[in-house]
Write a protein that binds this DNA or RNA. Sequence first.
DNA 1: CGATTTTTTGAATCATATCAACGTACGTGG
DNA 2: CCACGTACGTTGATATGATTCAAAAAATCG
Lengths: 204, 204
Amino acid sequence: MKAAIPTNIHPGLLRSLQQFVGFTQSEYELFCTFLEVCHVKKKEIYLQPGKISHATAYVNKGCLRRYILDDHAKEIIVNFAIEDWWIGDLESFVHQTPTIYYIQALEDSELFLLTRSSFSALCEEIPKYKTFHDEKVQRNHYTTLKRLALAKSGTPEEKYLLLMKEQPQLFQRIPLHYIASYLGIEPESLSRLRKRLTEKPQKS
Amino acid sequence: MKAAIPTNIHPGLLRSLQQFVGFTQSEYELFCTFLEVCHVKKKEIYLQPGKISHATAYVNKGCLRRYILDDHAKEIIVNFAIEDWWIGDLESFVHQTPTIYYIQALEDSELFLLTRSSFSALCEEIPKYKTFHDEKVQRNHYTTLKRLALAKSGTPEEKYLLLMKEQPQLFQRIPLHYIASYLGIEPESLSRLRKRLTEKPQKS
DNA sequence: CGATTTTTTGAATCATATCAACGTACGTGG
DNA sequence: CCACGTACGTTGATATGATTCAAAAAATCG
């Protein structure tokens, strides 16, 4: 499953590290030496409740979902991750506590793992990476808070249209019943909702 | 509204700073010199959309709510803050951007403000405070993610009972229609839900 | 092609929202 | 101290919209 360091250049990763962390080319190369490649097959579970997350993962290729199983054994999707996103359970990763989440690949995926020890070493070697990481957590927090408010606001239709507008890429590769779960509705409801929208098309 | 430094010892603040930041008595005293007192009357708006949050606030006394006004002009309560909690919009505070939230006092409240410049100075003088602050943001992020999942899981009744169990203090001082908004339901529904629960009491 | 996954459709049911009205508690000012 | 106004909570009748269950149709994959 895990393998050695990736050898070629990864444009998405390079670009975001240059842009957000201000990495130089050589810092980027150093950064890459801390990574491990991990391949996860479609449907395969990458992380599951009770396990400890030993790494945070950059999605180089593919698509995954993070979800919980609630008291009624119903899957609730918390987020998706596609190329150029990071995925993992930071709480489990940082505090080495058992996670409550599942992370499953929806397509054959290639992840670049930054393990806990590599992460520590990296932060020692390139302190600004630590700053970048902390700011990433902060940004995630802001957006999660907004999503929480949004979850209690408006109709399923409005939530659907908003997601369509903000994350159209997701609709091109993720089965609709997963989108339904993410929106907090049943697949049948999403189907009917979409039908209504095509019948009464958007104000021409 | 704002006044000078608080003079006496504030047990809740002292305890949490000792416990979580590992402050000594003298560090605590130094910390206090960075604070400003601010009194907010019941119903008064402490922060509103469009404004920039110039401080993060420790609630020494009282109770506040943070909410947004959604597209249908409906108030959605994101969180409450009572004694010994911090409240503010970190996104606005950190990046000096206009907030999207209202923060309103539900009781006459006393806040200790840490302004942006004080915060910077404090982090310079006591670097571990910065670490503490970053970790606080992280913890908030974990709990917000769980709340997001929970928001899509289970019935209103289950959410109500969970809140009852985890934050019983809130019910002693916050009007039920605010609790309803926090739970994402209408006041009437909360009323009926509570009636059902008293009629069919918990499995004796 | 056969098997599995995904999406759609229909009908019945159920829970919450909505609208309207009333009861109650609280606190302020006369 | 009472009276009045405001804020809060409850109740009833009705409507709305999503869920549930069952089944079929469509798409995807090996």
